[in-house]
Design a protein around this nucleic acid. Sequence first.
RNA 1: GGCUCCAUAGUUCAACGGAUAGAACGGGGGUUUCCUAAACUUCAAAUCUGGGUUCGAUUCCCGGUGGAGCCA
Length: 591
Amino acid sequence: MFNVCQSGRPMTFPQLLQQRVAAALTGLGHTLPEGFTAAVDPAADPRFGDYQTNAAMVLAKALKTNPRALATELAGAIDITGLSATPTVAGPGFINFAITAEALQTRLDSLLADEKLGIAPTENPRTIVIDFSAPNVAKQMHVGHIRSTIIGDCLARIARFVGHRVITDNHIGDWGTQFGMVLYGWKRDLNEAALLSDPIRELLRIYKAVNAESKAQEDELKAGDRPDTPVRDACRAELVKLQAGDPENLAIWRRCVDLSLSGLAVVYNKLDIAFDHYLGESFYNDRLPSLVAELEASGLARESNGALCIFMDDSPDAAPFIIRKRDGGYGYATTDLATVEHRLRVWQATDVWYVVGAPQAYHFQQLFDATRRWGLQGRFQHIAFGSILGPDGAMMKTRSGESVGLMEVLEEAEERALAVVEEKNPDLTGDEKAEIARAVGIGAVKYTELSQHRLTDYKFSWDRMLALQGNTAPYLQYSYVRTRSIFRKLDGTEPALAGPYLITEDQERWLALTLSRFAEVVPAVLEDFRPNLLATYLFTLAQAFHSFFEACPVLRAEGQVRATRLALCEATSRVLKTGLGLMGIRTTERM
RNA sequence: GGCUCCAUAGUUCAACGGAUAGAACGGGGGUUUCCUAAACUUCAAAUCUGGGUUCGAUUCCCGGUGGAGCCA
């Protein structure tokens, strides 16, 4: 009945409708303008119908005819057999479609038979390296890292789900200038006992102490109260020794990295996030001198004010990409070039996605420009996101230490969730409560990030980050729990799923339609890297389910009505679990 | 100084150039002998400002105002 795609799955309702609208236009003898597609979208308001097209209005403009008349003519010519009720024309020339109950019933059946829930694998599979999280060694992961980590993980899961080959790479900051300070502080006043009991905290203490001292001296220098900055100079000296391969400094550095990685593992474990690779900055050290030499020899880079620079192709007056500093050192620019080279040549990536904050936009513009002119081919994406602001509305500064630790947020999230479980469901076992608290607490934090537009800046707030009411993960998780609860109550002898189905009630209809839209939404997330589309969709689905649940008794119904409602519950259950899973959020059977 | 991003109910967020701008929280009303009330239902409440393009602008363009960021 429905046209199918390559994988044998039925096309989505908008795809089918679009096909038929296009066929009708051709049948009417209209020559379509270049680039015209008969786009079909969900209707703005359910009162108008389920889907709408404004093709007649767009086309009427190009053909200089009356849109309303064209819409009427077109509506009459569309073959909607097995798909929609007779299309209606409304407003200036919208054509509205109402999917028939039969089509929804058939769709429900195919959804339940498909482990991918209607999502066709991409026809153009790519090899995508996703660069996200990227914390710095010897520093604490704070809330500022949360967006990259959670958004990156979600995009990786979705890209895999739709059939891309995905390589996740945590580009750890393990070779930055902060090591000068850490080394200096380590040698001067490391507390071994403290290092053993809480390594990250001790490293952070050293770093902060040295940083504060160095900064104070710099301020005094500026104010003319002091002729030199001995701490800063000593730190630089330590850094130079490290980079020159000094065995003692290398050993300390190695230990710092190892300690930090084990600290990070705890956080990632709590977050349920794993990486295929942890190739930090240091991995590329050996490549940097030859890379710079190549770029210089090829003429792409040239000297300017003692530094070796790549100037932007299209705007040569703009700030250049500095690949070797005046003092001979290498910065992020050089490391990033070596990194992208590795990803393209060794991993054979076709795409590289960088999930990094919006302030880095210019850096990536430079990086992509330089990479292309170097001759490396690939699709590069800076997937930017907005900043988490402090209470004053300005960005939180790591160095001043005012930002909140990520682990602290996750632990508080679990505690708050646990308190709610204790209150709502005291009879559960301790293990169950802990499992629920984890799913709900961590889920709430992830959902907060994923449910809003990634470019939005927001002020950090505990209550916002850890909210458990309203448009939050637990609302969705609770819908899932309700579906599972119904199936626990079946006696075990009756088949849970048995068509043919019969949809009659409004709430059933709306739920079935919403379920079918999962296949429309998931691929759309990757069009503009917008996880909030999936979050919004799942929230709509949960709302549809709760309304259905209140209005349509399942277990007290009989025959075909009961079978249909069970099928709707099962489909909701699977879509919610899968959809939440794509966001890295767990579900539990009870809560 | 140059460039980039942002501005929507009291608050926090949505809205491929489409119809009467949609939610959540908070506020007001209602729903529990019935599959988990972490739920449902209902009411009030918003596009910073001035132009432009368009049949149609929260969305695109230009100028203000206000906020954030990047670069030197």
